[in-house]
Design a protein around this nucleic acid. Structure first.
Length: 509
RNA sequence: GGGCGCGUAGCUCAAUGGCAGAGCAGUAGCCUUUUAAGCUAUUGGUUAAGGGUUCGAGCCCCUUCGCGCUCACCA
C-alpha cells in the first residue's frame, strides 16, 4: 500500500506502541455495556441514589470521534453502534504519563476501551471519568474529518464526506462518519423485517429459488449470462422469481414469497441498479382485487412498523399511505391525461396514429403494449404522487397475466405508484397451460427475434402448469424503491450499501 | 449511448490567464470542565490523466477517465 503523510505518522505511532510492548490490535476486550445501556443505567442510578455517590465502574468501547486536550485534562467522545459518550481524562486520576500517552498516541478513528465511573461534567453531560483505557484497534487512515456543532438542539455537520463518488466507493468511510447514512440502512433492514412479519402472519412461507437459471423469464429484461464449467452449461442470473414461485403453487404451497436479488443487464440510473432486491409473493385462491387490498394493508403495516406513521415525506411531497389507495382504470387514466382512448385503438398502428395526432412523439415500430407503456411512463407515472393503483393492462405486455373476462385485449393486472415512481406490479395469474403456451408464442411473434426482452419458451414451466395450478394472485415490488420512499432518498444508490459503479483505473480508490 | 455540469491538500471549499490559498484534520508548544474548545507556530499540492495555445494555464482548446444531472433505454 501507498501511505500518505498522515498515515505514516500513525504507522509510526503503531511502531512506538509495539516498542513499548503495547499491542495496538489486542485480541480481547473487556466491555460490559453498550454506550446506550450505560447511559440509561446511569440515569436510573441517578434517580435512585444520592448523586454525590459515585456510580459503579463500567467499561465501554467505541471509536474516538473527538479529542479536546487541555494540558492536564482531556475530553474525548467515543461512539459505538448504540451511541456516543464523553470521556474525561484527568491528570489526578491517571497521572501525567498516561495522559500524555493518550494525547500523543490516540487519534480520531481509533477503537478504544475506557473504564471508570460515570458522572456529569460541569455542563451536565454524562461522562466517564476514566481510570483505565486501552487501544483496541488503531486506525491508520484518518476518517474524513467531520465535526458536529449543536445549535438550538440542531446538529450541524461540518466538512463531512459528501462527494457521492467517494461516499459510494468507500461506503465504509461514509457509514463511519455519517450517522444518518447508517440510519437509512437500519430503516432498510426494518422494512424487510416488517414485510416478512406481515406476510408470515398471513400464513405465507418464505422460500428460496434458483438465482442461476437455465432459462430466464418472468419479466421483460435483458439478463446477465454466465457458464458452468464442469457441466458445460449456459446459465442466466435470474431477472425475476415468478416462474419458480408459481411452480411451488403447483406443488401445493398455497402462499409463498421470496425476498432476494434480481439481476438486469440494463441501463443504470437514479432508479435502476443492475442488481436490486425484489419481493414477490403468490397467493392461491386470490385474484388481483384481493392482492390490491392486501398491498394496501401490507404497506400501511410497514409504515406503522418502521416509521410509526403513515404520512411520509418524499422529494418535497407529503404522501399519505392510508388505506384505501386511489384506483384508476388504465384506460381512463390515459384518456384523462392524453385524450386517447386506448380501447378505441386496437392495434399498434391506430394507437401510433392517435399519439401522432395528439403530438405525443410515439416511437416507431413498437408493439401496442409498449406504446401504452410509454404513455404510462410519460403521462401517468410522474403524476401519481399519492398512492395509486392503475389497473387493467394491455395483454401483449403481460404474458403471464389472466384475461379480463369480456375484454380479450385486457388482463387483470395492476401497478402501484407512489411518489411518482412505479413501486409494484401484480396480476391474476394465468393458470391455463394451453393459453400460456399460446401467449409465449404470441410474444415470439409480436417481439422482434433479436429483442432480448421477449420471453423464451419455458417448456418445464408449461409442464408444471399442466399438472394444474390453483387460481392465484401474484405480486412483485422493488424493495429498493420502497426504501427510497421511506427514507426520502431520490437516488437508488442511497439505499444500496454498495451500488454498482464503473471501474476506475486507480486501484487505490 | 447523447446533452449539460463537475473533478484543486486527508475532509469541506476559495483562487480576472500572472507567487495555489483558507477552515478543519495533522505536527510542535501553552492550557484542569471542554464539546466545531481556545491561543501560538507549522507541515502538507503530479490542481483527475495526457496533449495543445500562450512570455505565462487550476483557469482557454483537444483527448481520455470518473462522478452528478438529464434524455434515450428500462413491464
Amino acid at each position: 500500500m501507498d501511505w500518505n503523510e498522515l498515515e505514516k505518522i500513525r504507522l509510526a505511532k503503531i511502531d512506538q506502541m509495539r516498542a513499548e510492548n503495547v499491542e495496538p490490535y489486542p485480541t480481547r476486550t473487556e466491555v460490559d455495556y453498550s454506550i446506550k445501556d450505560a447511559i440509561s443505567a446511569f440515569e436510573t442510578f441517578e434517580k435512585n441514589n444520592d448523586p454525590s455517590i459515585c456510580s459503579p465502574e463500567v467499561t465501554l468501547a467505541g471509536r474516538i470521534r473527538s479529542n479536546r486536550n487541555m494540558g492536564k485534562l482531556a475530553f474525548s467522545h467515543i461512539e459505538d453502534g448504540s451511541g456516543r459518550i464523553q470521556l474525561m481524562l484527568r491528570i489526578n486520576e491517571i497521572g501525567e504519563e498516561n495522559l500524555k500517552y493518550f494525547c500523543d498516541l490516540f487519534d480520531l478513528g481509533d477503537f478504544i476501551q475506557a473504564s471508570g465511573v460515570l458522572m456529569r461534567s460541569k455542563t451536565g453531560e454524562i461522562t466517564i471519568l476514566v481510570k483505565n483505557f486501552k487501544m483496541l484497534a488503531k486506525a491508520v487512515t484518518p476518517l474524513p474529518a467531520a465535526k458536529d456543532e449543536v445549535i438550538d438542539g440542531k446538529v450541524i455537520r461540518h466538512a463531512t464526506l459528501n462527494d457521492p463518488e467517494n461516499r459510494y466507493r468507500q461506503r465504509y468511510a461514509d457509514l463511519a462518519v455519517n450517522e444518518e447514512i447508517r440510519k437509512t440502512f437500519r430503516t432498510r433492514t426494518a422494512i424487510v423485517r416488517a414485510l416478512q412479519k406481515f406476510l408470515d402472519s398471513h400464513n405465507f412461507i418464505e422460500v428460496e429459488t434458483p438465482i442461476l437459471q437455465p432459462i430466464y423469464g418472468g419479466a421483460a429484461a435483458r439478463p446477465f449470462s454466465t457458464f458452468h464449467n464442469q457441466l458445460h452449461q449456459d446459465l442466466f442470473l435470474r431477472i425475476s422469481f415468478e416462474l419458480y414461485l408459481k411452480r411451488l403453487l403447483v406443488g401445493g404451497f398455497d402462499r409463498v414469497y421470496e425476498i432476494g436479488r434480481d439481476f438486469r443487464n440494463e441501463g443504470v440510473s437514479f432508479k435502476h441498479n443492475p442488481e436490486f432486491t425484489q419481493l414477490e409473493f403468490y397467493m392461491a385462491y386470490a385474484d388481483y382485487e384481493k392482492i390490491m387490498s392486501l398491498t394496501e394493508q401490507m404497506l400501511a403495516f410497514v409504515c406503522d412498523e418502521v416509521l410509526g406513521t403513515r404520512t411520509i415525506a418524499f422529494d418535497g411531497h407529503e404522501i399519505n399511505m392510508n388505506i384505501p389507495w386511489k384506483r384508476l382504470e388504465l384506460r381512463q387514466g390515459i384518456l384523462d391525461a392524453t385524450g386517447i382512448d386506448i380501447y378505441a385503438c386496437t392495434d399498434a398502428d391506430s394507437l401510433y396514429q392517435a399519439m401522432k395526432n395528439n403530438n405525443l412523439n410515439p416511437k416507431e415500430n413498437q408493439p401496442r403494449g409498449k406504446l401504452i407503456d410509454s404513455l404510462i411512463g410519460d403521462y401517468l407515472e410522474p403524476a401519481c404522487i399519492q398512492p395509486t393503483f392503475l389497473f387493467d393492462y394491455p395483454r401483449d405486455i403481460s404474458p403471464l397475466a389472466k384475461n379480463k373476462p369480456g375484454n380479450p385485449q385486457v388482463v387483470e393486472r395492476f401497478e402501484g405508484f407512489v411518489g411518482g415512481m412505479e413501486l409494484c406490479n401484480a396480476f391474476t395469474e394465468l393458470n391455463d397451460p394451453l393459453e400460456q403456451e399460446k401467449r409465449f408464442a404470441e410474444m415470439g411473434r409480436t417481439y422482434n427475434e433479436k429483442d432480448e426482452e421477449r420471453h423464451p419458451m419455458d417448456e418445464d414451466y408449461l409442464k408444471a402448469m399442466s399438472y394444474g395450478m390453483p387460481p392465484s394472485g401474484g405480486f412483485g415490488m422493488g424493495i429498493d424503491r420502497l426504501a427510497m420512499l421511506l427514507t426520502n432518498n431520490r437516488s437508488i444508490r442511497e439505499v444500496i450499501l454498495f451500488p454498482h459503479l464503473r471501474e476506475t483505473d486507480d486501484e487505490e480508490k
